[in-house]
Nucleic acid binder design. Structure first.
Lengths: 309, 309
RNA sequence: GGACACCUCCUGGA
DNA sequence: TCCAGGAGGTGTCC
Protein backbone atom coordinates (compact mmCIF):
# COMPACT_ATOMS: atom_id res chain seq x y z
CA UNK A 1 0.00 0.00 0.00
CA UNK A 2 0.98 3.52 -0.53
CA UNK A 3 2.68 5.07 2.45
CA UNK A 4 1.35 8.49 3.35
CA UNK A 5 3.48 10.76 5.53
CA UNK A 6 3.61 14.42 6.41
CA UNK A 7 6.92 16.27 6.74
CA UNK A 8 7.45 19.63 8.38
CA UNK A 9 10.11 21.92 9.78
CA UNK A 10 10.26 24.65 12.40
CA UNK A 11 12.79 27.29 13.38
CA UNK A 12 12.15 29.49 16.39
CA UNK A 13 13.16 33.01 15.48
CA UNK A 14 14.29 31.81 12.04
CA UNK A 15 17.11 31.39 12.08
CA UNK A 16 17.21 29.88 15.52
CA UNK A 17 16.75 26.58 17.32
CA UNK A 18 15.30 24.35 14.64
CA UNK A 19 13.50 21.06 14.30
CA UNK A 20 12.15 18.73 11.66
CA UNK A 21 9.72 15.82 11.76
CA UNK A 22 7.87 13.36 9.61
CA UNK A 23 4.78 11.56 10.74
CA UNK A 24 2.81 8.54 9.57
CA UNK A 25 1.00 7.66 12.77
CA UNK A 26 1.64 7.73 16.48
CA UNK A 27 3.86 4.68 16.37
CA UNK A 28 5.72 5.71 13.27
CA UNK A 29 7.37 9.09 13.17
CA UNK A 30 10.74 10.68 13.62
CA UNK A 31 12.11 14.07 14.50
CA UNK A 32 15.38 15.85 14.98
CA UNK A 33 16.94 19.26 14.77
CA UNK A 34 19.83 21.57 15.41
CA UNK A 35 20.70 24.19 18.01
CA UNK A 36 20.71 26.69 15.16
CA UNK A 37 19.08 26.38 11.77
CA UNK A 38 16.53 27.80 9.38
CA UNK A 39 12.96 26.93 8.61
CA UNK A 40 13.95 25.63 5.22
CA UNK A 41 16.73 23.41 6.53
CA UNK A 42 14.05 21.83 8.70
CA UNK A 43 11.59 21.45 5.85
CA UNK A 44 14.23 19.77 3.68
CA UNK A 45 15.63 17.52 6.38
CA UNK A 46 12.18 16.20 7.27
CA UNK A 47 11.80 14.82 3.76
CA UNK A 48 15.40 13.62 3.57
CA UNK A 49 15.03 11.62 6.75
CA UNK A 50 11.71 10.17 5.68
CA UNK A 51 13.25 8.92 2.45
CA UNK A 52 16.29 7.54 4.24
CA UNK A 53 14.30 5.69 6.86
CA UNK A 54 11.84 4.17 4.45
CA UNK A 55 14.73 3.03 2.32
CA UNK A 56 16.55 1.57 5.31
CA UNK A 57 13.38 -0.28 6.22
CA UNK A 58 13.35 -1.91 2.83
CA UNK A 59 10.36 0.04 1.62
CA UNK A 60 12.06 1.81 -1.23
CA UNK A 61 9.80 0.01 -3.66
CA UNK A 62 6.62 1.08 -1.95
CA UNK A 63 4.76 4.08 -3.36
CA UNK A 64 5.22 7.04 -1.03
CA UNK A 65 3.11 10.17 -0.77
CA UNK A 66 4.68 13.10 1.07
CA UNK A 67 2.42 15.80 2.44
CA UNK A 68 4.38 19.01 2.73
CA UNK A 69 3.41 22.64 3.27
CA UNK A 70 6.61 24.11 1.89
CA UNK A 71 6.53 25.09 -1.73
CA UNK A 72 10.24 25.60 -1.42
CA UNK A 73 10.77 21.89 -0.83
CA UNK A 74 8.22 20.74 -3.37
CA UNK A 75 9.50 23.02 -6.08
CA UNK A 76 13.07 22.12 -5.24
CA UNK A 77 12.51 18.44 -5.81
CA UNK A 78 9.96 18.60 -8.61
CA UNK A 79 11.03 21.64 -10.59
CA UNK A 80 14.23 23.37 -9.76
CA UNK A 81 16.85 20.66 -9.34
CA UNK A 82 17.24 19.86 -13.05
CA UNK A 83 17.96 23.49 -13.88
CA UNK A 84 20.37 23.86 -10.99
CA UNK A 85 22.32 20.81 -12.11
CA UNK A 86 22.58 22.19 -15.59
CA UNK A 87 24.05 25.39 -14.22
CA UNK A 88 26.44 23.77 -11.78
CA UNK A 89 24.16 24.23 -8.80
CA UNK A 90 23.68 27.91 -9.48
CA UNK A 91 20.40 29.74 -9.21
CA UNK A 92 18.84 31.95 -11.86
CA UNK A 93 20.82 34.89 -10.53
CA UNK A 94 24.09 33.01 -10.73
CA UNK A 95 24.55 32.69 -7.00
CA UNK A 96 25.03 29.28 -5.43
CA UNK A 97 22.04 27.27 -4.30
CA UNK A 98 21.48 27.34 -0.53
CA UNK A 99 21.34 24.27 1.68
CA UNK A 100 23.20 22.47 -1.03
CA UNK A 101 24.10 19.41 0.96
CA UNK A 102 20.50 18.70 1.88
CA UNK A 103 19.29 19.44 -1.61
CA UNK A 104 21.76 17.02 -3.13
CA UNK A 105 20.90 14.31 -0.63
CA UNK A 106 17.27 14.81 -1.50
CA UNK A 107 18.03 14.53 -5.18
CA UNK A 108 19.85 11.23 -4.73
CA UNK A 109 17.23 9.78 -2.42
CA UNK A 110 14.38 10.53 -4.72
CA UNK A 111 16.04 8.96 -7.75
CA UNK A 112 14.32 5.74 -8.75
CA UNK A 113 11.77 6.00 -5.99
CA UNK A 114 8.04 6.12 -6.46
CA UNK A 115 7.33 9.34 -4.61
CA UNK A 116 4.72 12.00 -5.06
CA UNK A 117 4.61 15.27 -3.23
CA UNK A 118 1.37 16.96 -2.28
CA UNK A 119 1.17 20.50 -1.05
CA UNK A 120 -1.02 21.05 1.98
CA UNK A 121 -1.73 24.46 3.40
CA UNK A 122 -0.03 24.97 6.74
CA UNK A 123 -2.08 25.38 9.89
CA UNK A 124 -5.27 24.51 8.14
CA UNK A 125 -6.22 21.56 10.25
CA UNK A 126 -4.71 18.76 8.15
CA UNK A 127 -4.20 16.04 10.68
CA UNK A 128 -0.90 14.58 9.53
CA UNK A 129 0.59 18.00 8.89
CA UNK A 130 -0.36 19.20 12.34
CA UNK A 131 1.18 16.11 13.91
CA UNK A 132 4.48 16.64 12.10
CA UNK A 133 4.39 20.35 12.91
CA UNK A 134 3.90 19.64 16.58
CA UNK A 135 6.88 17.29 16.70
CA UNK A 136 9.18 19.54 14.73
CA UNK A 137 8.34 22.42 17.02
CA UNK A 138 8.88 20.24 20.10
CA UNK A 139 12.43 19.53 19.00
CA UNK A 140 13.13 23.19 18.26
CA UNK A 141 11.81 24.08 21.69
CA UNK A 142 13.96 21.43 23.31
CA UNK A 143 17.04 22.88 21.64
CA UNK A 144 15.98 26.35 22.67
CA UNK A 145 15.83 25.26 26.28
CA UNK A 146 19.12 23.40 25.83
CA UNK A 147 17.18 20.46 27.10
CA UNK A 148 18.99 17.14 27.29
CA UNK A 149 15.95 15.24 26.05
CA UNK A 150 15.25 15.65 22.37
CA UNK A 151 12.00 13.94 21.35
CA UNK A 152 13.23 12.03 18.31
CA UNK A 153 10.44 9.50 17.94
CA UNK A 154 10.44 5.76 17.23
CA UNK A 155 11.42 6.14 13.59
CA UNK A 156 10.38 3.50 11.18
CA UNK A 157 9.63 0.68 13.57
CA UNK A 158 11.65 -2.39 12.72
CA UNK A 159 14.10 -0.43 10.69
CA UNK A 160 15.52 1.07 13.80
CA UNK A 161 15.99 -2.38 15.32
CA UNK A 162 19.39 -3.80 14.65
CA UNK A 163 17.99 -7.31 14.80
CA UNK A 164 15.23 -6.73 12.31
CA UNK A 165 15.40 -9.12 9.41
CA UNK A 166 13.19 -10.79 6.89
CA UNK A 167 11.82 -13.35 9.29
CA UNK A 168 10.55 -10.67 11.59
CA UNK A 169 8.39 -9.33 8.85
CA UNK A 170 5.99 -12.21 9.07
CA UNK A 171 4.08 -10.27 11.63
CA UNK A 172 1.23 -7.93 10.99
CA UNK A 173 0.61 -4.65 9.42
CA UNK A 174 3.40 -2.37 10.41
CA UNK A 175 6.33 -4.42 11.46
CA UNK A 176 7.23 -5.55 14.89
CA UNK A 177 6.80 -3.63 18.02
CA UNK A 178 10.18 -2.69 19.38
CA UNK A 179 11.25 -4.79 22.35
CA UNK A 180 10.40 -1.85 24.50
CA UNK A 181 6.61 -1.59 24.47
CA UNK A 182 6.95 2.01 25.40
CA UNK A 183 6.50 4.23 22.35
CA UNK A 184 9.85 5.73 23.21
CA UNK A 185 9.05 9.32 22.73
CA UNK A 186 11.97 10.89 24.44
CA UNK A 187 15.41 9.61 23.74
CA UNK A 188 18.17 11.20 25.67
CA UNK A 189 20.35 13.20 23.33
CA UNK A 190 22.34 10.53 21.55
CA UNK A 191 26.01 10.88 22.26
CA UNK A 192 27.09 10.15 18.76
CA UNK A 193 25.83 13.35 17.24
CA UNK A 194 26.16 15.49 20.29
CA UNK A 195 26.22 18.89 18.70
CA UNK A 196 29.31 20.79 19.67
CA UNK A 197 28.59 24.29 20.87
CA UNK A 198 29.42 27.05 18.43
CA UNK A 199 32.20 28.13 20.74
CA UNK A 200 33.78 24.71 20.67
CA UNK A 201 33.46 24.48 16.94
CA UNK A 202 35.16 27.76 16.37
CA UNK A 203 38.06 27.06 18.72
CA UNK A 204 38.57 23.76 16.99
CA UNK A 205 38.65 25.48 13.62
CA UNK A 206 40.97 28.15 14.91
CA UNK A 207 43.35 25.52 16.21
CA UNK A 208 43.25 23.65 12.95
CA UNK A 209 44.40 26.77 11.15
CA UNK A 210 47.64 26.61 13.05
CA UNK A 211 48.47 23.12 11.80
CA UNK A 212 50.74 22.48 8.85
CA UNK A 213 48.21 20.06 7.48
CA UNK A 214 45.49 22.64 7.05
CA UNK A 215 47.86 25.40 6.03
CA UNK A 216 49.03 23.24 3.15
CA UNK A 217 45.52 22.50 1.98
CA UNK A 218 44.27 25.24 -0.31
CA UNK A 219 40.76 23.87 -0.59
CA UNK A 220 40.42 23.53 3.16
CA UNK A 221 41.67 27.08 3.57
CA UNK A 222 39.21 28.24 0.97
CA UNK A 223 36.49 26.60 3.03
CA UNK A 224 37.57 28.23 6.24
CA UNK A 225 38.35 31.74 5.06
CA UNK A 226 35.35 33.95 4.47
CA UNK A 227 35.05 35.38 0.95
CA UNK A 228 35.78 38.79 2.44
CA UNK A 229 38.55 37.61 4.71
CA UNK A 230 41.17 40.19 5.71
CA UNK A 231 44.01 40.09 8.15
CA UNK A 232 46.37 42.43 9.87
CA UNK A 233 49.41 40.26 10.44
CA UNK A 234 51.63 40.52 13.47
CA UNK A 235 54.03 42.55 11.36
CA UNK A 236 51.32 45.09 10.66
CA UNK A 237 50.99 43.94 7.09
CA UNK A 238 47.56 43.72 5.50
CA UNK A 239 46.55 40.46 3.87
CA UNK A 240 43.58 39.57 1.77
CA UNK A 241 42.15 36.14 1.22
CA UNK A 242 43.97 35.14 -1.93
CA UNK A 243 47.32 36.39 -0.74
CA UNK A 244 46.88 34.57 2.52
CA UNK A 245 46.03 31.26 0.91
CA UNK A 246 48.92 31.59 -1.46
CA UNK A 247 51.39 32.44 1.29
CA UNK A 248 50.26 29.66 3.56
CA UNK A 249 50.23 26.92 0.99
CA UNK A 250 53.66 27.89 -0.30
CA UNK A 251 55.17 27.64 3.16
CA UNK A 252 52.75 25.81 5.36
CA UNK A 253 55.03 24.86 8.26
CA UNK A 254 53.36 25.63 11.53
CA UNK A 255 55.40 28.39 13.08
CA UNK A 256 53.41 28.96 16.24
CA UNK A 257 51.12 27.08 18.49
CA UNK A 258 48.11 28.13 20.42
CA UNK A 259 49.20 28.69 23.97
CA UNK A 260 46.01 30.07 25.51
CA UNK A 261 42.43 30.87 24.60
CA UNK A 262 41.70 34.14 26.37
CA UNK A 263 38.05 34.29 25.48
CA UNK A 264 35.34 33.26 23.05
CA UNK A 265 32.43 35.66 22.93
CA UNK A 266 29.33 35.93 20.88
CA UNK A 267 29.28 39.43 19.46
CA UNK A 268 26.20 38.85 17.30
CA UNK A 269 23.88 35.93 16.81
CA UNK A 270 26.06 34.66 14.00
CA UNK A 271 29.44 36.02 14.97
CA UNK A 272 31.98 34.82 17.51
CA UNK A 273 35.14 36.60 18.57
CA UNK A 274 38.06 34.45 19.68
CA UNK A 275 40.90 36.07 21.57
CA UNK A 276 43.99 33.95 22.09
CA UNK A 277 47.75 33.78 22.40
CA UNK A 278 50.25 31.99 20.27
CA UNK A 279 53.87 31.29 20.97
CA UNK A 280 56.39 30.33 18.37
CA UNK A 281 59.66 31.17 16.80
CA UNK A 282 58.86 34.85 16.81
CA UNK A 283 57.78 34.90 20.43
CA UNK A 284 54.44 35.55 22.04
CA UNK A 285 51.62 37.17 20.10
CA UNK A 286 48.11 38.12 21.11
CA UNK A 287 45.54 37.51 18.44
CA UNK A 288 41.88 37.95 17.69
CA UNK A 289 39.76 36.15 15.15
CA UNK A 290 36.26 37.04 14.09
CA UNK A 291 34.25 34.05 12.91
CA UNK A 292 30.90 34.44 11.23
CA UNK A 293 28.35 31.79 10.49
CA UNK A 294 27.30 31.39 6.88
CA UNK A 295 25.04 28.92 5.16
CA UNK A 296 28.04 26.68 4.67
CA UNK A 297 29.42 26.89 8.17
CA UNK A 298 31.68 29.06 10.26
CA UNK A 299 34.12 31.20 8.33
CA UNK A 300 37.04 33.31 9.49
CA UNK A 301 36.13 36.86 8.57
CA UNK A 302 38.99 38.79 10.13
CA UNK A 303 42.17 38.13 11.98
CA UNK A 304 44.69 40.35 13.63
CA UNK A 305 47.89 39.62 15.51
CA UNK A 306 50.01 41.84 17.71
CA UNK A 307 53.44 40.89 19.06
CA UNK A 308 53.51 41.07 22.83
CA UNK A 309 56.42 42.60 24.65
CA UNK B 1 2.85 71.05 33.90
CA UNK B 2 2.99 67.90 31.92
CA UNK B 3 -0.37 66.26 31.44
CA UNK B 4 -0.37 62.55 32.14
CA UNK B 5 -3.22 60.44 30.75
CA UNK B 6 -3.89 56.76 30.14
CA UNK B 7 -5.66 55.58 26.98
CA UNK B 8 -7.20 52.16 26.43
CA UNK B 9 -9.59 50.23 24.20
CA UNK B 10 -11.78 47.18 24.53
CA UNK B 11 -13.77 44.94 22.17
CA UNK B 12 -15.99 42.16 23.46
CA UNK B 13 -15.54 39.15 21.20
CA UNK B 14 -13.12 41.13 19.01
CA UNK B 15 -14.56 42.13 16.75
CA UNK B 16 -17.69 42.99 18.67
CA UNK B 17 -19.17 45.76 20.76
CA UNK B 18 -16.24 48.09 21.36
CA UNK B 19 -15.22 50.96 23.59
CA UNK B 20 -12.38 53.38 24.14
CA UNK B 21 -11.46 55.71 27.00
CA UNK B 22 -8.81 58.08 28.22
CA UNK B 23 -8.39 59.04 31.84
CA UNK B 24 -6.55 61.76 33.75
CA UNK B 25 -8.52 61.77 36.98
CA UNK B 26 -12.08 61.21 38.12
CA UNK B 27 -13.17 64.63 36.94
CA UNK B 28 -11.30 64.48 33.66
CA UNK B 29 -11.88 61.54 31.40
CA UNK B 30 -13.82 60.60 28.30
CA UNK B 31 -15.08 57.44 26.67
CA UNK B 32 -16.96 56.29 23.61
CA UNK B 33 -17.40 53.32 21.33
CA UNK B 34 -19.20 51.54 18.56
CA UNK B 35 -21.79 48.76 18.33
CA UNK B 36 -19.19 46.81 16.33
CA UNK B 37 -15.45 47.39 16.31
CA UNK B 38 -12.05 45.89 17.01
CA UNK B 39 -9.71 46.14 19.95
CA UNK B 40 -7.26 48.15 17.90
CA UNK B 41 -9.85 50.65 16.73
CA UNK B 42 -10.53 51.28 20.40
CA UNK B 43 -6.86 51.63 21.29
CA UNK B 44 -6.32 54.14 18.48
CA UNK B 45 -9.48 56.13 19.08
CA UNK B 46 -8.68 56.59 22.76
CA UNK B 47 -5.49 58.43 21.82
CA UNK B 48 -7.11 60.34 18.97
CA UNK B 49 -9.81 61.69 21.23
CA UNK B 50 -7.34 62.58 23.94
CA UNK B 51 -5.32 64.63 21.47
CA UNK B 52 -8.42 66.27 20.04
CA UNK B 53 -9.84 67.24 23.39
CA UNK B 54 -6.61 68.62 24.78
CA UNK B 55 -6.20 70.63 21.61
CA UNK B 56 -9.75 71.92 21.77
CA UNK B 57 -9.11 72.96 25.36
CA UNK B 58 -6.18 75.06 24.24
CA UNK B 59 -3.60 72.76 25.75
CA UNK B 60 -1.83 71.85 22.56
CA UNK B 61 1.32 73.52 23.83
CA UNK B 62 1.38 71.59 27.07
CA UNK B 63 3.65 68.57 27.27
CA UNK B 64 1.53 65.42 27.20
CA UNK B 65 2.45 61.96 28.34
CA UNK B 66 0.22 59.15 27.11
CA UNK B 67 0.22 55.85 28.99
CA UNK B 68 -0.80 53.11 26.62
CA UNK B 69 -0.67 49.33 26.82
CA UNK B 70 -0.90 48.78 23.09
CA UNK B 71 2.39 48.34 21.34
CA UNK B 72 0.41 48.58 18.14
CA UNK B 73 -0.57 52.18 18.87
CA UNK B 74 2.84 53.20 20.17
CA UNK B 75 4.73 51.70 17.27
CA UNK B 76 2.24 53.14 14.82
CA UNK B 77 2.82 56.68 15.96
CA UNK B 78 6.50 56.51 16.84
CA UNK B 79 7.87 54.12 14.27
CA UNK B 80 5.72 52.90 11.46
CA UNK B 81 3.95 55.94 10.07
CA UNK B 82 6.98 57.36 8.24
CA UNK B 83 7.51 54.11 6.38
CA UNK B 84 3.84 53.74 5.56
CA UNK B 85 3.76 57.22 4.09
CA UNK B 86 6.76 56.47 1.96
CA UNK B 87 5.03 53.38 0.61
CA UNK B 88 1.65 54.98 0.03
CA UNK B 89 0.15 53.63 3.26
CA UNK B 90 1.17 50.07 2.51
CA UNK B 91 2.59 47.64 5.02
CA UNK B 92 5.77 45.65 4.67
CA UNK B 93 3.89 42.92 2.83
CA UNK B 94 2.40 45.38 0.35
CA UNK B 95 -1.12 45.15 1.73
CA UNK B 96 -2.90 48.31 2.83
CA UNK B 97 -2.58 49.56 6.39
CA UNK B 98 -5.60 48.82 8.56
CA UNK B 99 -7.67 51.43 10.39
CA UNK B 100 -6.27 53.99 7.99
CA UNK B 101 -8.62 56.82 8.87
CA UNK B 102 -7.77 56.69 12.55
CA UNK B 103 -4.09 56.31 11.84
CA UNK B 104 -4.06 59.38 9.61
CA UNK B 105 -5.98 61.43 12.13
CA UNK B 106 -3.49 60.40 14.76
CA UNK B 107 -0.63 61.42 12.51
CA UNK B 108 -2.07 64.88 11.96
CA UNK B 109 -2.92 65.41 15.59
CA UNK B 110 0.51 64.52 16.81
CA UNK B 111 2.28 66.87 14.40
CA UNK B 112 3.68 69.85 16.22
CA UNK B 113 2.59 68.59 19.61
CA UNK B 114 4.82 67.78 22.53
CA UNK B 115 3.72 64.20 23.16
CA UNK B 116 5.51 61.27 24.67
CA UNK B 117 4.15 57.74 24.66
CA UNK B 118 4.93 55.30 27.41
CA UNK B 119 4.13 51.64 27.26
CA UNK B 120 2.56 50.16 30.37
CA UNK B 121 1.83 46.48 30.72
CA UNK B 122 -1.88 45.80 30.65
CA UNK B 123 -3.60 44.51 33.75
CA UNK B 124 -0.55 45.01 35.89
CA UNK B 125 -2.08 47.33 38.41
CA UNK B 126 -1.14 50.69 36.89
CA UNK B 127 -3.73 52.97 38.33
CA UNK B 128 -4.44 55.21 35.36
CA UNK B 129 -4.41 52.32 32.93
CA UNK B 130 -6.92 50.39 35.03
CA UNK B 131 -9.18 53.41 35.21
CA UNK B 132 -9.17 53.83 31.44
CA UNK B 133 -9.65 50.10 30.93
CA UNK B 134 -12.65 50.08 33.21
CA UNK B 135 -14.31 52.91 31.31
CA UNK B 136 -13.58 51.50 27.87
CA UNK B 137 -15.04 48.18 28.90
CA UNK B 138 -18.08 49.87 30.39
CA UNK B 139 -18.88 51.44 27.03
CA UNK B 140 -18.37 48.16 25.17
CA UNK B 141 -20.68 46.45 27.63
CA UNK B 142 -23.28 49.18 27.21
CA UNK B 143 -23.24 48.66 23.45
CA UNK B 144 -23.48 44.91 23.95
CA UNK B 145 -26.63 45.37 26.01
CA UNK B 146 -27.89 47.89 23.48
CA UNK B 147 -28.20 50.13 26.45
CA UNK B 148 -29.45 53.62 25.83
CA UNK B 149 -27.02 55.15 28.28
CA UNK B 150 -23.41 55.24 27.13
CA UNK B 151 -21.07 56.46 29.88
CA UNK B 152 -19.02 59.00 27.96
CA UNK B 153 -17.46 60.99 30.82
CA UNK B 154 -17.03 64.69 31.45
CA UNK B 155 -14.31 65.12 28.86
CA UNK B 156 -11.79 67.88 29.26
CA UNK B 157 -13.61 70.17 31.66
CA UNK B 158 -14.37 73.41 29.93
CA UNK B 159 -13.29 72.09 26.57
CA UNK B 160 -16.44 70.13 26.15
CA UNK B 161 -18.43 73.29 26.78
CA UNK B 162 -19.50 74.90 23.53
CA UNK B 163 -19.06 78.35 24.99
CA UNK B 164 -15.46 77.87 25.95
CA UNK B 165 -13.19 80.39 24.30
CA UNK B 166 -10.05 82.39 24.94
CA UNK B 167 -11.60 84.44 27.69
CA UNK B 168 -12.33 81.35 29.70
CA UNK B 169 -8.66 80.65 29.97
CA UNK B 170 -8.11 83.20 32.65
CA UNK B 171 -8.94 80.42 35.03
CA UNK B 172 -6.68 77.78 36.42
CA UNK B 173 -3.08 76.90 36.50
CA UNK B 174 -2.37 74.87 33.43
CA UNK B 175 -2.83 76.11 29.93
CA UNK B 176 -0.41 78.11 27.94
CA UNK B 177 -0.99 80.16 24.88
CA UNK B 178 -1.92 77.82 22.05
CA UNK B 179 -0.20 80.22 19.69
CA UNK B 180 3.02 78.88 21.07
CA UNK B 181 5.45 79.00 18.17
CA UNK B 182 7.39 76.10 19.60
CA UNK B 183 7.82 73.56 16.80
CA UNK B 184 7.10 70.03 17.92
CA UNK B 185 9.39 68.36 20.28
CA UNK B 186 7.90 65.03 19.56
CA UNK B 187 10.67 62.57 20.05
CA UNK B 188 9.87 60.17 17.29
CA UNK B 189 11.58 60.13 13.94
CA UNK B 190 12.93 63.55 13.26
CA UNK B 191 12.23 63.97 9.61
CA UNK B 192 14.44 66.98 9.26
CA UNK B 193 17.81 65.36 8.90
CA UNK B 194 18.63 62.40 6.78
CA UNK B 195 19.68 59.60 9.10
CA UNK B 196 23.32 58.70 8.83
CA UNK B 197 24.10 55.18 7.68
CA UNK B 198 25.40 52.79 10.30
CA UNK B 199 28.77 52.84 8.61
CA UNK B 200 28.96 56.62 8.87
CA UNK B 201 27.85 56.55 12.46
CA UNK B 202 30.48 54.08 13.45
CA UNK B 203 33.31 55.87 11.70
CA UNK B 204 32.27 59.07 13.39
CA UNK B 205 32.29 57.34 16.78
CA UNK B 206 35.62 55.74 16.04
CA UNK B 207 37.10 59.13 15.15
CA UNK B 208 35.67 60.69 18.27
CA UNK B 209 37.50 58.11 20.36
CA UNK B 210 40.77 59.53 19.13
CA UNK B 211 40.01 63.03 20.40
CA UNK B 212 41.26 64.31 23.72
CA UNK B 213 37.81 65.60 24.47
CA UNK B 214 36.18 62.20 24.45
CA UNK B 215 39.15 60.43 26.02
CA UNK B 216 38.88 62.75 28.98
CA UNK B 217 35.17 62.13 29.42
CA UNK B 218 34.57 59.02 31.50
CA UNK B 219 30.84 59.03 31.05
CA UNK B 220 31.13 59.38 27.30
CA UNK B 221 33.62 56.53 27.25
CA UNK B 222 31.29 54.46 29.35
CA UNK B 223 28.62 55.09 26.75
CA UNK B 224 30.83 54.09 23.85
CA UNK B 225 32.58 51.05 25.28
CA UNK B 226 30.54 47.87 25.35
CA UNK B 227 30.10 46.31 28.79
CA UNK B 228 32.30 43.44 27.60
CA UNK B 229 34.84 45.63 25.88
CA UNK B 230 38.33 44.23 25.51
CA UNK B 231 41.37 45.46 23.68
CA UNK B 232 44.72 44.20 22.53
CA UNK B 233 46.81 47.35 22.50
CA UNK B 234 49.53 48.02 19.98
CA UNK B 235 52.03 46.92 22.60
CA UNK B 236 50.35 43.55 22.84
CA UNK B 237 48.93 44.36 26.20
CA UNK B 238 45.42 43.26 27.08
CA UNK B 239 43.00 45.84 28.37
CA UNK B 240 39.56 45.52 29.82
CA UNK B 241 36.89 48.15 29.96
CA UNK B 242 37.58 49.63 33.36
CA UNK B 243 41.31 49.72 32.92
CA UNK B 244 40.90 51.41 29.56
CA UNK B 245 38.60 54.09 30.87
CA UNK B 246 40.90 54.75 33.77
CA UNK B 247 43.99 54.96 31.59
CA UNK B 248 42.40 57.25 29.04
CA UNK B 249 40.87 59.67 31.48
CA UNK B 250 44.08 59.95 33.44
CA UNK B 251 46.04 60.87 30.34
CA UNK B 252 43.63 61.81 27.65
CA UNK B 253 45.92 63.63 25.24
CA UNK B 254 45.33 62.43 21.70
CA UNK B 255 48.50 60.69 20.68
CA UNK B 256 47.50 59.56 17.22
CA UNK B 257 45.18 60.56 14.49
CA UNK B 258 43.19 58.56 12.04
CA UNK B 259 45.11 58.58 8.79
CA UNK B 260 42.99 56.20 6.70
CA UNK B 261 39.86 54.12 6.92
CA UNK B 262 40.72 50.89 5.14
CA UNK B 263 37.27 49.38 5.32
CA UNK B 264 33.96 49.27 7.11
CA UNK B 265 32.16 45.97 6.73
CA UNK B 266 29.04 44.53 8.14
CA UNK B 267 29.96 41.20 9.64
CA UNK B 268 26.54 40.54 11.12
CA UNK B 269 23.28 42.40 11.00
CA UNK B 270 24.21 44.27 14.16
CA UNK B 271 27.97 44.25 13.96
CA UNK B 272 30.36 46.38 11.93
CA UNK B 273 34.09 45.91 11.57
CA UNK B 274 36.19 49.01 10.99
CA UNK B 275 39.75 48.60 9.77
CA UNK B 276 41.90 51.72 9.80
CA UNK B 277 45.32 53.26 10.23
CA UNK B 278 46.52 55.75 12.74
CA UNK B 279 49.70 57.74 12.76
CA UNK B 280 51.13 59.43 15.78
CA UNK B 281 54.13 59.79 17.97
CA UNK B 282 54.72 56.06 17.93
CA UNK B 283 54.45 55.77 14.18
CA UNK B 284 51.97 54.02 11.98
CA UNK B 285 49.61 51.41 13.36
CA UNK B 286 46.97 49.28 11.70
CA UNK B 287 43.88 48.82 13.78
CA UNK B 288 40.54 47.05 13.82
CA UNK B 289 37.44 47.87 15.83
CA UNK B 290 34.38 45.73 16.20
CA UNK B 291 31.23 47.73 16.85
CA UNK B 292 27.98 46.10 17.85
CA UNK B 293 24.54 47.63 17.97
CA UNK B 294 22.73 47.47 21.29
CA UNK B 295 19.46 48.88 22.46
CA UNK B 296 21.31 52.01 23.48
CA UNK B 297 23.29 52.45 20.31
CA UNK B 298 26.56 51.34 18.78
CA UNK B 299 29.18 50.16 21.23
CA UNK B 300 32.82 49.30 20.75
CA UNK B 301 33.10 45.61 21.58
CA UNK B 302 36.71 44.91 20.69
CA UNK B 303 39.75 46.77 19.48
CA UNK B 304 43.19 45.69 18.45
CA UNK B 305 46.20 47.60 17.21
CA UNK B 306 49.37 46.39 15.56
CA UNK B 307 52.41 48.56 14.88
CA UNK B 308 53.30 48.57 11.21
CA UNK B 309 56.84 48.27 10.08
C1' G C 1 7.22 41.79 -8.57
C1' G C 2 5.19 36.87 -7.03
C1' A C 3 4.68 32.43 -3.91
C1' C C 4 5.09 29.30 0.21
C1' A C 5 6.91 28.66 4.85
C1' C C 6 9.15 30.01 9.53
C1' C C 7 8.64 33.17 13.27
C1' U C 8 8.83 37.70 16.89
C1' C C 9 5.84 41.22 19.68
C1' C C 10 1.66 43.60 21.90
C1' U C 11 -3.26 43.86 22.80
C1' G C 12 -8.33 42.28 22.84
C1' G C 13 -11.52 38.48 23.93
C1' A C 14 -14.32 33.35 24.48
C1' DT D 1 -6.95 25.80 26.48
C1' DC D 2 -8.83 28.24 22.11
C1' DC D 3 -9.58 32.54 18.67
C1' DA D 4 -8.94 37.57 16.47
C1' DG D 5 -6.78 42.23 15.59
C1' DG D 6 -2.46 44.38 14.34
C1' DA D 7 2.51 45.14 13.25
C1' DG D 8 7.57 43.76 12.27
C1' DG D 9 11.11 40.38 10.35
C1' DT D 10 13.86 36.03 7.86
C1' DG D 11 14.40 31.74 4.84
C1' DT D 12 14.19 30.49 -0.06
C1' DC D 13 12.93 30.19 -4.84
C1' DC D 14 11.03 32.05 -9.57
Amino acid sequence: MTIVAAADGSALGNPGPAGWAWYVDDSCWAAGGWPHGTNNMGELMAVVDLLEQTEAAGLAGEPLKVLCDSQYVINTVTKWIPGWKRKGWRKADGKPVQNLELVQRLDELVAGRNVVFEWVKGHAGHELNEAADLRARAVATAYQRKSAAIPTGPGWAGAAMPGADASAKASPARAVAPADPEPALFDAAPLRDEPATDEETVVRLETSLLTAEVRADASRLAELLHPNFEEIGASGRLWDRDTTIQALTSSPAADAELSAVLGVSRVASDALLVVFETSGSRGLARRSSLWVRTASGWKLRFHQGTPAV
